[in-house]
């Protein structure tokens, strides 16, 4: 190989392609492919007895049949509802906020605001969620404050409602949405917005036609960073939603921790991974189709100008 004279010297000295990616690939193999592979392998097995967790002596798809029962589907649809609503809420709150931060706040203050956004992350995830439980309970701060202000006359409880779940979800995941959005919006040159304004577009049209399309990678990153962990998180929902916060992740965890049925737990985990991936793909596809439909007419109206000149 090295004796091949036709290979330019620089090319021979250069790092072989792929070498730079090796650590990343090794990481991926070790911490993603291997565990998922193992889970998949377990999912084809069974729970042989009361005191054993799994066995692969017989390979079967029966666990998938069990996994896809009523319980799983009901839990999953509830989880999907919380996942989608929570992600949408994070986007609805995070987008204007990130825009304000990237565009309106003076550069030297942005750091301070970003630090404030991240303050909740300095505390343990569970502690800050349970903190909300304290705030939202009938004897809690929110209820007392509203009573002393005369807004309500009996203790109220927001705890263990869907609203509490969404509140906790937004609280815990909003920074994951804001950060990528902020980075994406901050990277958009301010003169592009000025150019749009100068060309006759008001603020809203500028946002829709220039800022949002350019922030798309950030929006996608934010959606994924919130949606994926949220679909697997059952703590936030259980702490604040109680029975109303039943998440499919809890079902999977209970198979591993309580039922000690790793085969069924693995099958549920695999189904969950597949369904989450399909949801993301479907959303991405729907987004692409919408964009295409929205811009299609405009592209047609300008198509062929270049060819016209060649003729």
């Amino acid at each position: 190989m090295t004796s091949d004279r036709r290979v330019p010297r620089a090319a021979r000295r250069a790092v072989p392609p792929g070498l730079l990616a090796t650590p990343a690939l090794a990481w991926l193999a070790l911490f993603f492919v291997a565990p998922v592979g193992l889970v998949f392998w377990y999912s084809l097995g069974r729970k042989p007895g009361l005191y054993q967790t799994h066995a692969n002596d017989v390979l079967t798809l029966d666990r998938y049949r069990e996994a896809l029962g009523d319980t799983f589907l009901t839990s999953f649809s509830g989880t999907l509802r919380i996942g989608v609503t929570g992600t949408a809420l994070c986007l609805a709150i995070g987008l204007p906020f990130a825009y304000w931060l990237a565009v309106k706040v003076r550069p030297h203050r942005r750091f301070v605001v970003l630090a404030l956004v991240l303050v909740p992350f300095w505390t343990n995830f569970l502690i800050r969620t349970i903190g909300w439980q304290v705030v939202l309970s009938p004897e809690g701060f929110a209820s007392r404050a509203m009573q002393s202000l005369g807004l309500i006359d009996a203790p109220f409880s927001m705890l263990f409602t869907r609203g509490a779940v969404l509140l906790g979800v937004v609280y815990n995941y909003l920074p994951m949405m804001i950060l990528p959005l902020y980075v994406a919006l901050d990277r958009i040159d301010g003169s592009l917005r000025e150019a749009s304004n100068d060309l006759g577009a008001n603020r809203w049209r500028t946002a829709l036609q220039v800022t949002l399309p350019l922030a798309r990678p950030g929006i996608a990153a934010g959606l994924l960073l919130v949606f994926i962990p949220l679909m697997g998180d059952y703590v936030t929902a259980a702490v604040l939603g109680g029975a109303r916060g039943n998440m499919v992740g809890q079902l999977v965890a209970s198979q591993f921790q309580q039922a000690q049925n790793w085969a069924l737990g693995s099958a549920m985990a695999v189904v969950l991974i597949v369904v989450i991936a399909l949801t993301i793909l479907a959303t991405a596809a729907a987004g692409a189709v919408c964009t295409w439909l929205l811009t299609h007419r405009r592209r047609r109206e300008l198509a062929g100008i270049a060819e016209g000149s060649a003729a």
């Binding site: 150019a195 749009s196 060309l199 577009a201 049209r205 350019l214 405009r298 592209r299 300008l302 270049a306």
Partner: peptide
Amino acid sequence: ALFPHMTVAANIAYGLRQ
């Protein structure tokens, strides 16, 4: 300050479309 996500023609059409 050309819009990076639009073609040259779309950039030029931008003002007219508003």
